[in-house]
Amino acid sequence: MDDEFPTRDEDELHTRLKAYEGRAATVAGVGRDPVNAPMIRHWCEAMGDRNPAYTGPDAIAPPTMLQAWIMGGLSGHGGRARAYGELLALLDEAGCTSVVATDCEQEYLRPLRPGDEVTFDTVIESVSGRKTTKLGTGYFVTTRTDIRVGGASAGTHRFRILKYAPAGHDLKDRDQDRNQDGDRNQDGDRNQDRGRQEAARRPRPVVNRDNAGFWEGVRRHRLLVQRCTACATLRFPWLPGCGTCGSAGWDTVEASGEGTVYSYVVMHHPPFPAFSPPYAIGLIELAEGVRIVSNVVDVPYDKVRIGLPVELEFRAYDDDSVLPVFRPRAGEAAA
């Protein structure tokens, strides 16, 4: 297939697929279980691996178990970003409804030990041109997952799948697809449902190496503010250097959770599925002096005002996402 010229439709599909390269597939994923001895033992028994490094008080996990700590299990991945679902839906729509995992590459940067809690981010690294294999014709999708423990890199897991139309089935162009009845339309409906469910979720936090510590803190119900170790200036948002003195050194202080509404907005339009307008968003000035954007909860949107004393609370949204929000301090609700 490589030596054939693609048709315009194929070209167009490839361009649309390529646009997903570099986009996040999972943001701020959290391993379902901490690294633990029972899973290690089961793995070693299944593999017949008797390496003594994997048992005893100083046991490490077999490096090749890396993927085991980030798998979603039968119930699927909670933290997947919309882009990955969209990419797969595009391929489904083009007739590439089958999937096979082809290979994976891993790099091990430090051993994992029982008790380690892994966090991870996955990006869509590449989408190949159209390829024909014995299984059928389709596209290779490669994702790269960076796995961390306590903010430090532990390893990289590169995973490749082939999404393909089984041999004997043609790739469909989109117009044909729309005219089909039966299974494909049902697939289409399922894809739309998936799209709607994704759309109803709040936008995910945007997490990278510079701010992962903040979101890690939120997950543990601690609101962490950076503090410059050279000049002691507190700063928010998180950045890898001090805007006051330029020093790169920092530690964190945990916010007391007390604050006041410094400004606010009441959102009316356009509507976003995850939110019910009108709703209030506050710019909260913390007692420590830094400001953070958050929701003001437990008070009608039209009772939010500048100067309202508020206090921190952590709330779970969409099952898997914890956010720091603020409620009026006791006795202040409908002032």
Binding site: R204, V206, V265, M267, I281
Partner: peptide, 11 residues
Amino acid sequence: TALGWTLPFGL
């Protein structure tokens, strides 16, 4: 990431 501080809250 700079813009990301506001997105989960609906701003």
